[in-house]
């Protein structure tokens, strides 16, 4: 019975910040559920309009660069691998290795954003963005909706990648300083969970936007 854990939840002054390991993770998982539901709303919109504008989605999706999309998928998957490697290394008390993997994760996240930048740039140069004259005057309703969804979904995902980048960098500093170590790694684990969630969302976004053409 974890009565000591129950009587002193961690607060600003607790000398034992690791009072309730399971509680920390349960709490963070609840946050991940809210993220899932948030993206779920976007996916709902996608399926709703996919049924309505099947042909137009087909046509609009074929303008996306499958090579870049698949490349980015590999980048994110690899970053997920280095993330778990970093956690395992820390658990095995190899701080240097853990930092190396964490740094690689951060680099892959940056690489993802760079590819995204070129992709979005290409769309903008063709006038395929929400509110553009070209899109609204010379394309059908379905294509307008597809690009609306494309930018909203990849944009929301991109915001999460950037937030993940910040969190990862923060963790890097804390592991470096020894605030996170082999006996107290709930923060690193939770940030890792968040990063995998970002990966998870992309696993669905990639086929829906790039391949169902």
């Amino acid at each position: 019975m974890s009565s000591h854990a129950a009587s002193h939840p961690q607060d600003a002054h607790s000398d034992n910040p690791h009072a309730d390991y399971i509680g920390d993770k349960v709490g963070f998982w609840f946050f991940l559920y809210t993220e899932l539901v948030l993206f779920g709303g976007l996916f709902l919109g996608y399926f709703f309009y996919h049924m309505k504008y099947k042909e137009a989605f087909h046509e609009a999706g074929s303008h996306l660069n499958v090579f870049m999309g698949a490349g980015n998928t590999v980048v994110l998957l690899t970053s997920s691998l280095t993330m778990v490697m970093s956690l395992t290394a820390l658990q095995k008390r190899k701080k240097g290795l853990s930092l190396l993997y964490l740094g690689m994760t951060i680099l892959f996240a940056l690489a993802f954003m760079v590819v995204k930048y070129f992709e979005w740039g290409a769309k903008f140069s063709y006038g395929l963005y929400p509110g553009s004259e070209i899109l609204q005057s010379s394309h059908s309703d379905g294509v307008i909706i597809f690009y609306g969804l494309y930018f909203v979904m990849t944009g929301t995902h991109g915001v999460h990648v950037v937030l993940g980048l910040l969190a990862l960098s923060w963790m890097f500093v804390w592991v470096w300083q020894g605030k996170i170590h082999a006996d107290d790694y709930a923060y690193l684990e939770n940030v890792g969970l968040y990063w995998h969630l970002v990966d998870l969302i992309w696993i669905y976004l990639f086929p829906l936007l790039y391949l169902v053409a």
Binding site: D199, I203, Y204, P207, L211
Partner: peptide, 20 residues
């Protein structure tokens, strides 16, 4: 669409079960 979703769900399951 359904095949793509099925494969994606397999991938998601791997990520959730092992990475997460």
């Amino acid at each position: 669409l359904w095949v793509a979703m099925l494969v994606a769900t397999f991938k998601a399951a791997l990520v959730i079960l092992y990475f997460m």
